[in-house]
Design a binder for these strands. Structure first.
Lengths: 337, 337
DNA sequence: CACCTTTCTGTAAACGTTTACTGCGATCGC
DNA sequence: GCGATCGCAGTAAACGTTTACAGAAAGGTG
C-alpha cells in the first residue's frame, strides 16, 4: 500500500515532462510516439489520477451532498435512490448527511460548503426558519432545497402541494360516504405538519362537514408515534369512520392499531395516508395514499442541481410536483380479481 | 458567490504571513497579539478552510466510502444508518456507492480508491470472486469487507454465520412439530445464497428429515420475486407445513401469497425469514426471523475501518457476529396479552 | 536557403494548505 | 556586557495536478 505513482513517476519512466503526461492523459493533441510511451508507462505503473490534486486545480470536486433528516425515512430513501443514478451518470459522487432534523446541524452543513468538498448540495429541511434562509443565500456552492421555501428566496426549489394532496384524500373519503374523518398529524412546527394541518381544516369545511377538534390528534411522523396518536384519537372519537394520516408511516401505525382494536378496514374505518411509500402498495390491506412524487422530486432536484452546476448564473427555479391520489384497499376494499 | 477568503486574504488583512495564519488556525503556539489579529480577520471574512487543499497536503480526506448493491435493501439501509454516526463522530463524511451487485462496478470502486478521494472503504459484495480478491488486496486504501471472504485473504472482514442461522430456524420449526419444511432461496451464485442452500440441506438431514428437492425453490432476494417463488413452491408441494425463507423480503412475499391462498400463518404454514429487518417485527403476523446482526455488522465494520485508519499496519481482523433467532407470531402465533 | 508557420514539448506558475528551516529580537546566565 | 538560548514569525517548499507561455524542431513557401 505504498504511495501510488504520480504523473512525475510516469514522466520519468517515459522520459518526457509532466506537462506532456498530463496532456496525453487528458487527450490533448500530442505526437503519436509520446502518447504511446506515456500510456504504456501509465499502464505499467497502474496509474490512477489523484482527484484531490485535480480538484484543487480545477475547483471542482465531482461530489454532491444530500442532506436529509434520517436516511431511514422511506421518503428520503426513495429520493436517494433516485438522485444517486442521476448524479452518477453525470460523473458525480454522492456524499450523505443525516441531520436528525436538527437545525444547527443543517446550518452547519450549509456552512461547510465553504470547505469546497462538494460542488453542490441538495437539502430537505423539515423546519425552515430565518436562519436557514440566510445560510442558504450565503452558501458558497449551489443549493437545491426540497420542500417549500418562502416565495422570493433566491434558491432552486422543488416543492409539492401537500394542501391539494390532503384535499384529494378528503374528497375521496367523503365520496365514499364518510363523514367523521379523523386526522392524525405530525408536529405543527414542521413545514409539512403546518401545511397539512391548515389543509385539513380548510378541506373539511369545503366538504361541508363540521370541524371537530376531537377528530384531530398530533403525534410524530413515525409508525410507533403514529400508532399511539391513533389510539388516543380512537378512544376520544370512537365513532370516526375514516382516518386521514399525514404520512404513510402514521397510516401503517393506524392499520396496526385498528386491527388490534378489531375494526375492519375499510368497512368500519377507511384509512388514507400520504407519500405513497413502497410499503403502501404491499401493506395489508394495501394503503390508499396521496403520492407526493418523492421519486420525481428527488430526480428533479438532482437535475436542477446539475443544470445549475452547468450554468451558475441563471435565475432560481421553482418546480412543483402535483400530488396524485393512489386509491387502494384501505379505502375501497379489495377489488374482486 | 464570489471566491471565498483564503489564508492569504487573512494574512493581508491581519498584516502577518500565511504561515502565522495557519499556525493560529491550527492552535500552534503563537503570540497573543497575533492570535487576536488573525482570529478577528478570519471572523470578519467568514473564513472557512478549503478541505481540498488541506487534503492534498495532509493526504487525508476525512471521507469514507460505503459500497453496497442497492441502498433500497433494508439490510444495507440498516448498515448505513449504523455506520454513518460512527464515522461522523470520528470526523468522517460518508460517500455512498450503489453497485447494483455488478462485479465490474465493484471492482471499479476498489480501483477508484487510487484517486484518493476517500481514506477507506466499507464494501459488501454479493458475489465474491477471484477478481474481487485481487482488487481488494491491490487497493490503495484500507478496505473492510462485510460478508465472508476466503480464509487467508488479507483484508478486514465482518461476517455472520448464516449456516448456523438457517439451522437455528430449522430446529425451531422442527420443534414446533413441522416436518414438511420448504425452502425459498435467492440465487445460488451469491455468497449468502450458496451458504444458505448448503445449510438447509445439512440442517434438514441433521433433523432426521428427508431432503426433498420438491421443497426447494429459487427466486431472488426481493419481495416480488420471493412471492413468485413461493407460489411455484406451493403448487408443487401443497402439503408443506413450514417455510424457511432465505431472507425477510422473501418471507414477506410468502406472507402475502399464503394469505391470498387462504392458508393461515402459522396454523397451516409456519414462516421464518432471515435478517430480522425492521419490518419483520411490524408485519402482520409479525415475522419470526434469524437476526444476522445487520446493525452490529455495520457498526463493527465502521469501527474496524476507523481502527485501521489509526493503525495501518496491524494484521487483518475477522469479526463474526453470531446469528440469533427472533421468535414471533409467524411461527408460534400471537402471544395472548 | 532564409524565413515563416505549424506542431509539439518543456518550464514554471498556480490552486490553498501545512511545515521545515531560517533569522530576528529579546531574555537569560555568567 | 557578551554569548547562548529562546520564542516567535517569515520564507519557501511541498502535496499532484493543469495550463499559459516560450522555445525547439519540423515543415512549407518564396
Amino acid at each position: 500500500m505504498s504511495d501510488g505513482p504520480t504523473i512525475t513517476t510516469i514522466a520519468e519512466r517515459a522520459g518526457v515532462s509532466i506537462a506532456s503526461v498530463s496532456r496525453v492523459l487528458n487527450g490533448l493533441p500530442t505526437r503519436e510516439d509520446t502518447v504511446r510511451r506515456v500510456l504504456s508507462a501509465a499502464d505499467e505503473l497502474g496509474y490512477v489520477p489523484n482527484s484531490v490534486a485535480r480538484s484543487l486545480k480545477s475547483r471542482r470536486t465531482n461530489q454532491v451532498a444530500f442532506a436529509m433528516a434520517d436516511i431511514g425515512n422511506p421518503v428520503y430513501l426513495t429520493m436517494v435512490r433516485e438522485i444517486q443514478p442521476v448524479l452518477k451518470a453525470a460523473g458525480y459522487r454522492l456524499v450523505l448527511h443525516s441531520t436528525d432534523a436538527d437545525v444547527a446541524e443543517e446550518i452547519d452543513v450549509l456552512r461547510s460548503l465553504g470547505e469546497r468538498y462538494v460542488d453542490g448540495l441538495i437539502m430537505i429541511p423539515l423546519r425552515i426558519g430565518e436562519a436557514h434562509l440566510k445560510a442558504v443565500e450565503a452558501a458558497r456552492a449551489p443549493v437545491v432545497i426540497i420542500g417549500s421555501v418562502p416565495d422570493g428566496t433566491r434558491v432552486d426549489n422543488v416543492r409539492t402541494d401537500s394542501r391539494t394532496g390532503v384535499r384529494l384524500a378528503l374528497e375521496h373519503l367523503r365520496s365514499l360516504g364518510r363523514r367523521r374523518i379523523g386526522f392524525v398529524n405530525g408536529p405543527l412546527d414542521t413545514v409539512p405538519g403546518s401545511a397539512r394541518s391548515t389543509a385539513y381544516a380548510e378541506g373539511i369545511r369545503e366538504l361541508g362537514l363540521p370541524y371537530d377538534e376531537n377528530l384531530v390528534e398530533i403525534g410524530d411522523f413515525y409508525r410507533a408515534e403514529g400508532a399511539q396518536a391513533v389510539s388516543r384519537l380512537l378512544s376520544r372519537a370512537p365513532d370516526l369512520d375514516a382516518l386521514m394520516c399525514a404520512n404513510d408511516l402514521i397510516a401503517l401505525g393506524a392499520l396496526d392499531v385498528l386491527r388490534r382494536a378489531g375494526r375492519r378496514v375499510p368497512e368500519d374505518v377507511a384509512v388514507a395516508g400520504m407519500d405513497d411509500i413502497d410499503l403502501a402498495a404491499v401493506a395489508w390491506p394495501s394503503l390508499t395514499s396521496v403520492s407526493l412524487g418523492s421519486a420525481e422530486r428527488g430526480r428533479l432536484a438532482a437535475e436542477l442541481l446539475l443544470d445549475r452546476l452547468g450554468n451558475g448564473d441563471r435565475d432560481p427555479k421553482v418546480v412543483t410536483v402535483p400530488p396524485r391520489l393512489m386509491v387502494r384497499a384501505s379505502t375501497v376494499g379489495e377489488e374482486t380479481p
